[in-house]
């Protein structure tokens, strides 16, 4: 079982090695990198390529580790007890399974994406140490020990808003997605839009790289922005000649808003 990218996702050699190492050693893979380099997409593509179900767990600032395991809905149970509902005798009726439970319980191996782990509270990763290491946890309410039937392939993404504790890092493999080089980027564009006018793509990429290389830019445009921008160029029927003029500085960049998301940056580029 080897991951080599898919029809619409170009995985560089180092990325596929990292993914395959994580899969065969059954370790979570922590992915970092510039925004827009396909961190989250990776998990989706792994699930597609290996034909496995994907479970996504999006982390927010209020997410707790416990929510990933299960939540005990004591309030509904109390309410039901008032109403004399028979359900009430069985506590397991009030246990809401979390994403990790789902993943552990699944009959076949799944891909579990823990997206943007850095958004959660600083203690969050520490609360998941045992769960990720042993792939099991204990449900106190029902006295069950939930053990993963098949250790899921876990992909964790982080945008570096908070650091992760060492103990957590030790349990993961780590890969930093760098911005693709020109060749790879060309391949990425090609898988998204087939049969494009190659000269147009070349021009568009020249402009794109020129913008990326500008100093003082706060948020450099990344792969996803380039893809969107090329789409706009196509929709707007921008020709290669027009882009040529942009390159020579004769006219402003069309649809600059797709590439730059910051007022300050657009001023610099213009």
């Amino acid at each position: 079982m080897q991951f080599k990218g898919t029809d619409n996702y170009i995985a560089s050699n180092d990325l596929s090695i990292a993914v395959n190492a994580a899969i065969s050693l059954e370790k979570p893979l922590l992915i970092k990198g510039e925004p827009g380099t396909g961190k989250t997409l990776l998990a989706h593509e792994i699930s597609k390529a290996l034909d496995k179900r994907l479970i996504t767990w999006h982390i927010k600032s209020t997410t707790t580790a416990q929510q990933g395991l299960y939540e005990y809905d004591a309030v509904s149970r109390l309410r039901d007890s008032q109403l004399g509902n028979d359900k009430v005798d069985d506590i397991s009726n009030y246990i809401n399974k979390g994403k990790l439970w789902d993943a552990f319980e699944s009959e076949e191996q799944v891909v579990l994406l823990i997206d943007e782990i850095d958004k959660a509270d600083i203690e969050f990763p520490n609360d998941l140490l045992l769960e990720l290491d042993k792939m099991e946890f204990f449900c106190y309410e029902t006295g069950q020990n939930i053990v993963a039937k098949h250790r899921p392939i876990i992909i964790i993404t982080s945008n570096n808003e908070k650091e992760l504790p060492d103990a957590f890092l030790r349990r993961c493999f780590f890969h930093y997605i760098t911005f693709p080089d020109r060749e790879t980027l060309k391949e990425i564009v090609d898988v998204h839009y087939e049969g494009l006018d190659q000269r147009l793509v070349q021009r568009a990429m020249n402009i794109f790289y020129a913008i990326r290389e500008q100093r003082n830019i706060k948020k450099k445009p990344s792969t996803s922005e380039l893809i969107d921008w090329i789409k706009l160029l196509l929709v707007g029927k921008i020709t290669e000649e027009e882009l040529n003029e942009v390159e020579n500085g004769a006219s402003p960049t069309p649809y600059l808003g797709a590439l730059l998301k910051n007022e300050h940056d657009s001023k610099i580029v213009r």
């Binding site: 090695i17 893979l29 890092l169 780590f174």
Partner: peptide, 15 residues
């Protein structure tokens, strides 16, 4: 090269 990528992914945990 592959060995480099592998050791990097396993040994280094922080960019």
């Amino acid at each position: 090269d592959n060995f480099y990528y592998l050791s990097r992914t396993v040994l280094v945990k922080n960019e």
